[in-house]
Every structure is written in C-alpha cells, then in structure tokens.
Simulated scan of single mutants.
Amino acid sequence: ALPLVSIALGSVGRAPALEALSRGLLGLVGVWMIWRALRGRHQHTAHEGEAVGVMAGLIPCPLTLFVMTFAIARGVPWAGLVFAVAMMAGVAITLGIVVALAVLFRKGSVAVLDRFGSSTAGVATLLEVATGLILVGAALHQAFGI
C-alpha cells in the first residue's frame, strides 16, 4: 500500500530508515523460512509469529501520521487519536478474520491431502519455500528495483 499512499500524499509521514529496516528484516525472514524448510525440521517456537509482526509493524502508517499532524495543526489532537484508534481497530479486526480463515483452511486442506494420500509435510515444505522466495523477492524488488 505504500506506493499508493505515496502517490496520493507524496512523501508525507515517510520514515525511509524504518522502511529499509523493515524490508531487510522481512527479506531475512524469507531466507530463514527457506533454510528452515530445506533443513527438514518443522518445530515452531512460542513467539515466532510475534517477531514477524514486530518486523512488519516497523513501517509507520503514512496516512495516520498525516492525519495526526493535521489534527494537531488544527488544534484538535483528540480527532487524530480517535482516527488512529479506529485504524488500529480495523487492522485488528481484519487480521483476526485472516487468522480465523487460515485456521479453517489448514484444517480443511489437511483433510483433503489425507484423502488423496499426499504428504502434508511435503506440501508444507513446498509452501514454506515458495513463501520464503516471495518474501526475499519482494524485499529485493523494493530495495533494489530487481
């Protein structure tokens, strides 16, 4: 969404250092996913998802920063805070729905794979490598235009 917001608002509220750090960390997550999938052990640690969330959350939302700055300039900081809370609630609801759908899809896909005799571990490895390649590719594209 960053390119769309940049077209609409210019470079207002951008934090290039944090954007570069976040892209680099997501690229490293992609490399780690590929390495872990090819290594063959699929053990999940307790706080694995939280680390990815922190890395992705390093990029500040340009729209929220713009609205907060505008609200403070107009003397109504509470309006900016209400907007920020509404944005956070929307993100939380959206992510909650995505998580619920992912859990349902996982249960259904395991049942389908079992019915057709496919290896769940093999499909999981393929998906993990593909996801890692997508993350690395996106990070390289954003960083270097490759």
Rank of each mutant, 00 (worst) to 15 (best):
A1D: 15
L4R: 13
V5M: 13
I7E: 14
G10C: 06
S11M: 11
S11K: 12
G13Q: 12
R14V: 12
A15M: 07
A17R: 05
E19P: 02
L21E: 04
L21H: 01
S22A: 13
S22L: 03
L28F: 02
V31K: 03
W32L: 08
W35Q: 14
A37K: 11
L38I: 10
R39P: 00
R39M: 02
G40A: 03
R41T: 13
H42M: 09
Q43K: 06
H44G: 05
H44S: 12
T45A: 13
T45R: 14
G49N: 11
E50P: 05
E50K: 09
A56M: 07
A56F: 05
A56H: 04
G57Y: 02
G57E: 07
L58K: 04
L58D: 09
L63K: 02
L65K: 03
F66V: 06
F66N: 10
F66D: 08
V67F: 04
V67N: 03
T69D: 15
I72K: 04
I72L: 05
A73S: 15
A73F: 10
R74I: 00
V76A: 13
V76D: 14
W78L: 08
A79Q: 07
V82W: 03
A84E: 03
A84V: 00
M87L: 13
G90I: 03
L101T: 11
L101Y: 11
V103H: 12
V103Q: 12
V103A: 13
L104W: 11
F105N: 04
K107C: 00
G108V: 02
G108T: 03
G108I: 01
V110Y: 08
A111S: 02
V112Q: 05
D114R: 07
F116S: 07
G117Q: 03
A121I: 08
G122N: 09
A124Y: 14
A124R: 15
T125Y: 09
V129N: 09
L133D: 10
L133T: 07
I134R: 02
G137C: 01
A138H: 07
L140I: 12
Q142W: 06
Q142Y: 05
F144S: 01
